[in-house]
Computed example of a mutant assay.
Amino acid sequence: MPAVAWVTVIIGGLIIVAAAVGLLRVGLHLRAVHSTLVAVAGGVRVIADQTSTVPTVLPSVNSTLKPVRDFCESI
């Protein structure tokens, strides 16, 4: 095999190795981003649970305050 062919094979191999290293780095960065997004989503879920809306409790509060409302309307 002539020297030019060996140089071509070596340069091609270096390009393939460089592309593989680049893809490996991209994969590692994506894994780090995924773990960060999982943590952020968990935090958002906790905040949403702690700041849930009032309608789940509102009927019982309204029924408890009905005597107060009736009294205020009578005045």
Rank of each mutant, 00 (worst) to 15 (best):
M1Y: 06
V4S: 13
W6Q: 12
V7G: 02
V7N: 10
T8W: 03
I10Y: 07
I11A: 14
G13E: 06
L14N: 08
I15W: 05
V17Q: 08
V17L: 14
A18Y: 10
A19W: 01
V21A: 10
V21I: 15
V21W: 03
G22H: 04
L23D: 03
L24F: 08
L24K: 07
L24I: 01
R25Q: 11
V26I: 10
G27Q: 07
L28H: 09
H29V: 12
L30D: 11
L30V: 02
R31L: 13
R31D: 14
A32F: 00
A32W: 00
A32Y: 00
H34N: 12
S35M: 08
S35N: 11
L37S: 09
V38A: 09
G42I: 00
V44Y: 01
R45E: 09
R45K: 13
I47T: 12
I47S: 05
I47Q: 08
A48K: 13
A48Y: 04
D49F: 05
T51D: 02
S52R: 15
S52D: 11
V54N: 04
V54K: 07
T56R: 15
L58Y: 09
P59K: 02
V61F: 13
T64H: 03
L65F: 15
L65C: 04
L65E: 04
K66D: 14
P67M: 02
V68T: 14
V68M: 08
R69K: 10
D70F: 00
F71K: 11
C72T: 09
C72L: 13
S74W: 08
I75G: 03
